[in-house]
Design a protein around this nucleic acid. Structure first.
Lengths: 205, 205
DNA sequence: GCATTACGCTACGAGTCGTAGCGAAAGCAT
DNA sequence: ATGCTTTCGCTACGACTCGTAGCGTAATGC
């Protein structure tokens, strides 16, 4: 790891302010222009840096947008509201609020589309965005089992499969609702969704 | 409607063969190049038509890819396997098989991403791709109610909301599994998913 | 034949890409 | 302070794609 300021290196250090300015400018450009019309030259101008500086830090548009969008998902936290249903509703509403932002919509789906043909990009998305979300599922599940709201898992392989399934169902449903159906994942929808999901998990075990 | 051969018009009619050649070439280019590197000039060359011909029929890359991908989903049929669970598994497996194709992955997600900033494009996607899928949900649900596997709906507004929810959950989960998690939605996964969904729907009612 | 429309081809200005080269700036070490 | 090293901003560049215009030709209906 020698990312931001390697500390043990000679020479002029990279400006950390430039990094945050570039990522902010990228999100701004995503809002104004969308994915396809976003150009790196435009982002550099918005950020107040030279185009060459941008290319020295990111290999291309895909990687840049992944990092810019990833910061949006940093705010995701697992709330402790006392019951599993309330916890799920809380985290899903957070997720929906992020996805409602235009820079998240256009940026995230575009890089996912590109990742179908670029393994390195898919791995970058997984590490910086997806895994953080999946972790919430695992934590919430463990907490619910400690509360006795869900039966404890004996087979760890089976537990992993179930966690993957829950994750795909939750994230997929919210994304589909927001982007494809183009309707808001508001409290009413989240309540209905959570009810179906919880009853399904409880009954299927 | 005066699409393919208006029949009541003078002059040379549009070549229907060119249409199919262009759409097939578009899918081929999606496989070879992916969305971002796909150019209309390349598609025209693959289809054996002039670039100008392509621009006379489609206003841009987005619309062309929507039509090319929409044809993939024409094969979707609701099977009659006797039980709701088997019907769902059948149609979900079909959906997963289509989404497993590289031209569907990269093309569909890319146009959905673009549609977040283009209402006309979103409407085109809805009419030619999404509505056809949603119809399967409505039909399958009606059939299950006729069989007595699901309680009949009294409130039509509530029924519409439930159908929308089911649709977002099913389509969203399969898409997320295939594209984001990048794992196959095979029979084992579909069985587990269907079990959770059905128990959720039955218990929540 | 005649009018009408679609087609193939060529050419064009405009815009973007990613890179190279340069001098200046900002740190660390002695 | 004085170097040494790395980053930064700037300019310029060839290559490529875009979407359109213009023109002659091909294929229909009347």
């Amino acid at each position: 790891m020698q990312s931001s300021t390697p500390a043990g290196r000679a020479g002029r250090p990279r400006s950390a302010a430039a990094d945050t300015a570039i990522l902010a400018a990228t999100r701004e450009a995503l809002v104004d222009l969308g994915w396809s019309k976003l150009t790196l030259g435009d982002v550099a101008m918005r950020a107040g840096v030279a185009k060459t500086t941008l290319y020295r830090r990111w290999s291309g548009k895909n990687e840049l947008v992944v990092d810019a969008v990833a910061e949006l998902f940093d705010q995701l936290r697992l709330p402790d509201r006392g019951t599993l249903a309330a916890d799920i509703e809380g985290v899903v509403l957070q997720f929906a609020a992020i996805l409602a932002r235009p820079e998240a919509k256009s940026g995230l789906m575009a890089v996912v589309a590109e990742s179908t043909r670029d393994d390195a990009l898919r791995e970058r998305i997984r590490a910086s965005i997806v895994d953080r979300q999946k972790r919430l599922v695992v934590e919430g599940r463990a907490r619910a089992q400690a509360r006795g709201e869900l039966p404890p898992e004996t087979d760890p392989a089976e537990a992993a499969r179930t966690a993957d399934l829950i994750f795909d169902v939750v994230a997929g449903a919210v994304v589909h609702r927001t982007l494809v159906s183009a309707e808001p994942a508001d409290e009413e929808w989240v309540r209905g969704f959570t009810r179906v999901l919880l009853h399904g998990l409880a009954s299927a075990a």
